[in-house]
Design a protein around this nucleic acid. Sequence first.
DNA 1: TTCATTGTACGACGACTATCGTAATTTGAC
DNA 2: GTCAAATTACGATAGTCGTCGTACAATGAA
Lengths: 115, 115
Amino acid sequence: MSTPTARALEHPPLEEIRLEAVLHALSDPMRLQVVRFLADLGQGQEAACSAIELAVSKSTTTHHFRVLREAGVINQVYRGTAKMNALRRHDLDALFPGLLDTVLEAEAAQRRRTG
Amino acid sequence: MSTPTARALEHPPLEEIRLEAVLHALSDPMRLQVVRFLADLGQGQEAACSAIELAVSKSTTTHHFRVLREAGVINQVYRGTAKMNALRRHDLDALFPGLLDTVLEAEAAQRRRTG
DNA sequence: TTCATTGTACGACGACTATCGTAATTTGAC
DNA sequence: GTCAAATTACGATAGTCGTCGTACAATGAA
């Protein structure tokens, strides 16, 4: 059968996602970079952890992805040896309309400004 | 004369305000409460630190106000024995259009949802 | 089975954070 | 000159955070 015992990954259900945790998750440059990357992928698209090159070690990368998942910002699922990541855009938009887009736009503005 | 040697307070100039610092400043419940309070005051209005009742000690309150100021979220100025606080709404809107309002709306939504 | 790929677990480290209490400072009023 | 009010400074403490390296585990391919 396909993925008989796929390792489970804890995700907060919609109603347990906290604004403070989301803001905290987004307040780190590395994690913001991850979110930007996933957003640029387009609606519903996913990417492996290894697809985005962060200037930190693998274990630190794992750490950041976990923070994002536990805050409710991304969804993670095992697919073969890879772990695929996708923004929980639908959930976030339902809870905090416009927040994700505004933060992404702010990040883009800052990048434009500071190079 | 009026305020000849008003104690100076360091504020980051507009171009040094960082999105990550702003998000971090807003990711604490106490500080979010302060921002909410100042926003509800209305455009350009200011309030003393003592005007908002936080469930922490006075020194901790001082700490949170400083974090907000150093992140560029609020402007602080001494006025007599008091220290007046106001949102840097104009600056924030110029740098990150819609961010403050979206976060405030998200906070309100969460408060509505979780009581 | 063997191997390469992908990511995790664990332990450690230094830095930062939120909190407190007490003592000190600044200012305006009396 | 005294006093009360508002806030800060300082030092402490417990906890979290971002980072690393090494060793380990899961998966799919050869």
